[in-house]
Amino acid sequence: MLLGIGHALAQYLIRKLEHYTRLSSEEKESLDALARLRTRRVRARDDIIHEGDVPQFINLVLDGWACRYKTLEDGRRQIVAYLLPGDVCDIGAPILREMDHSIGTITAVTLAEIPLDAAEQLLMAHPRLMQALCWDALTAASIQREWTVNVGQRTAFERLGHLLCELFVRMRVLGLTRGSSCDLPLTQAEIADTIGLSVVHVNRTLQELRSTGFITLGGRELTIHKLESFERVVLFNQNYLHLSHEGRHLDADET
């Protein structure tokens, strides 16, 4: 999924932000120009930035999968978010001055490393972009709340099914699904670190999900059969992803 010169490097970020507000051609071009200033390729299952580091750039995922995670002193890890193409890894870090979590890759990832002063200049020049990125940050916080509910209240079956639905819907927003299928490059250990189960329990729950006929999972590909029915079974409601904003319906000149 590595993007070539003919592509808008910021295309996935633009697609996502346009769920919140329609962007003008100038705004899109400015975003893409910012993404082209400096790029970096990071290999799979490596760290992009560590807890305690002082960020020098805002990192934008151009392709591949990454995650936010926290690690305890004894090595136990909790994954607290997945970062997909178009996700800004650390937009708040320049304000906080120090990373309070680490960001690692799941697959090989291409990043745009956006200088802090360049990002500030862009947002000052284009207030609508600032508004859209604020909506995106609020949606990320909404996803975090849903993950708290997932770990605290849902059954293992519901937790895993809910996570699969969320990742599929987020990939669909980006145009990265293939009918009812999408990439799913997660190991069972990574899923376990996400939903608070042991690897053995994740394996057993995956078998249970497969037995229902709702999902097919193999070869790093997820297929969800009868998505709406599966959503009801695992108590998944898309409202926390905030995908029905005015941006889907308005032209840039109307906002």
Rank of each mutant, 00 (worst) to 15 (best):
L163G: 01
L163W: 02
E166H: 11
E166W: 04
L167H: 08
F168L: 13
F168E: 05
V169W: 00
V169R: 05
R170T: 06
R170S: 08
R170Y: 04
M171G: 09
R172E: 13
V173F: 07
V173I: 13
L174F: 11
L174P: 10
L174N: 12
L174C: 10
L176D: 15
L176A: 13
T177D: 15
T177E: 14
R178G: 01
R178H: 14
G179F: 10
G179A: 12
G179M: 10
S180K: 11
C182F: 03
C182P: 04
D183N: 11
D183S: 14
D183C: 07
D183W: 04
L184E: 06
P185V: 04
P185T: 07
T187Q: 00
T187V: 00
T187P: 01
T187M: 00
Q188W: 02
Q188P: 00
A189R: 11
A189V: 08
I191N: 02
A192H: 02
T194F: 06
I195T: 00
G196E: 05
L197M: 11
L197N: 04
L197E: 04
S198P: 02
V199L: 05
V199H: 08
V200H: 07
V200Y: 05
H201Q: 13
H201Y: 01
V202W: 00
N203K: 12
T205V: 09
T205C: 09
L206E: 13
L206W: 08
Q207F: 00
Q207W: 00
E208A: 14
E208F: 03
E208C: 08
E208I: 06
S211E: 09
S211K: 10
S211G: 06
T212C: 08
G213L: 06
G213Y: 09
F214W: 09
I215C: 08
I215W: 07
I215L: 11
T216N: 08
L217H: 01
R220D: 12
R220C: 01
E221M: 09
E221D: 04
L222K: 08
L222D: 07
T223K: 10
I224K: 01
I224L: 07
H225T: 12
H225Q: 11
H225W: 06
K226R: 14
K226Q: 13
E228G: 01
S229T: 15
F230A: 03
F230S: 04
E231H: 09
R232D: 13
V233D: 09
V234M: 03
V234F: 01
V234K: 05
V234C: 05
L235M: 11
L235K: 15
N237P: 00
Q238E: 15
Q238R: 15
N239Q: 11
Y240R: 08
Y240I: 11
L241C: 07
L241Q: 10
H242M: 15
H242P: 01
H242N: 14
L243S: 07
L243I: 08
S244K: 10
H245E: 12
E246T: 13
E246P: 05
E246V: 14
R248H: 11
R248E: 12
R248L: 15
R248V: 13
H249M: 14
L250Y: 14
L250D: 12
